[in-house]
Design a protein around this nucleic acid. Structure first.
Length: 261
DNA sequence: ATGGCCTGTTACACAGGA
């Protein structure tokens, strides 16, 4: 089974890229983030036309996640509130950042983790609160589904080797020690980075800033990940980053990351 | 050090991204 994660930065603007990619890359499930569209305007037809089922959970202008699959998915869950009580969730489902479904024995959780803006800001605190709830959510998912694939745009580079430079990393959003420690804590329930099963060296990135010609200079970050439960991690046979779509005309700033097991 | 660029908006500058 192949599952891909791709932050497309507007599914409507990137529609051509995504449909083209699906037709040339045979994946079972494509997890999209930053769809930036309300559900009634999601371009589902474009995907059903090429043989994919579409499940989506969006909002106006910002955020939004979707699952595209060759076979129908079961038990689609939208938001933390699908399995966590309302009082605990609070306002953390206001932004549409979580969608999940089951294919065979595998539960796939597709996440768009908050960016956090800058360290100490209100959005940064929101990111940390969101991650705390995520830990509880994933612990529940893992209990129900021993084969768990958690993927998406994490907006955190786990290690210095996941960034083109180690300059000022401690003070930067997505690489601060607190963010990294919070992510490690989430993963401590029993999830491992699929990419690092196969590749130890640095210099592999999934996001390049639109500014400063960063893709051409390869000044990127690895912030899009697949985390697997022990059972799936053992089964995993590859995890690769496809940098090609980042070189297209009017690209997303992220590229697809695929895990196979 | 700063801002560079891109997307969507009851748009015509701004918020948000990372």
């Amino acid at each position: 089974m192949k599952v891909t994660s791709w932050n497309v930065n507007s599914v409507r603007t990137r529609l051509e890229h995504v449909t083209q990619w699906l037709q040339t890359h045979s994946v079972d499930v494509l997890c999209l983030q930053e769809t930036k569209v309300i559900d009634k305007d999601f371009p589902a037809q474009a995907f059903t036309d090429i043989g994919y089922h579409a499940y989506y959970y969006g909002q106006k202008s910002y955020n939004g996640v979707a699952l595209l699959s060759k076979s129908p998915l079961e038990d689609i869950q939208k938001g933390f509130g699908a399995i966590i009580d309302e009082a605990t969730v609070g306002d953390l489902d206001d932004q549409k950042r979580v969608i999940s479904g089951v294919l065979g024995d595998v539960r796939i959780v597709n996440l768009y983790i908050p960016n956090g803006s800058s360290i100490g800001s209100e959005k940064y605190e929101y990111k940390l609160s969101w991650l705390a709830l995520l830990k509880q959510y994933l612990a529940q998912q893992l209990k129900a589904h021993p084969q768990l694939n958690v993927c998406g745009d994490f907006n955190i580079a786990p290690e210095n080797k996941d960034i083109y430079t180690d300059k000022n990393r401690d003070k930067h959003i997505m690489s601060s020690p607190v963010e990294r420690e919070t992510l490690r804590d989430v993963l401590s329930i029993g999830l491992s980075d699929a990419f690092r099963k196969f590749t130890d060296e640095g210099g592999h990135f999934s996001w390049w800033d639109y500014r400063t010609n960063s893709f051409a200079r390869n000044t990127g970050w690895r912030i899009d990940h697949h985390y697997l439960s022990p059972k799936l991690y053992e089964k995993a046979i590859s995890c690769t980053i496809d940098t090609e779509p980042r070189g297209l005309e009017r690209p997303s700033d992220h590229t697809p990351v695929t895990v196979e097991y």
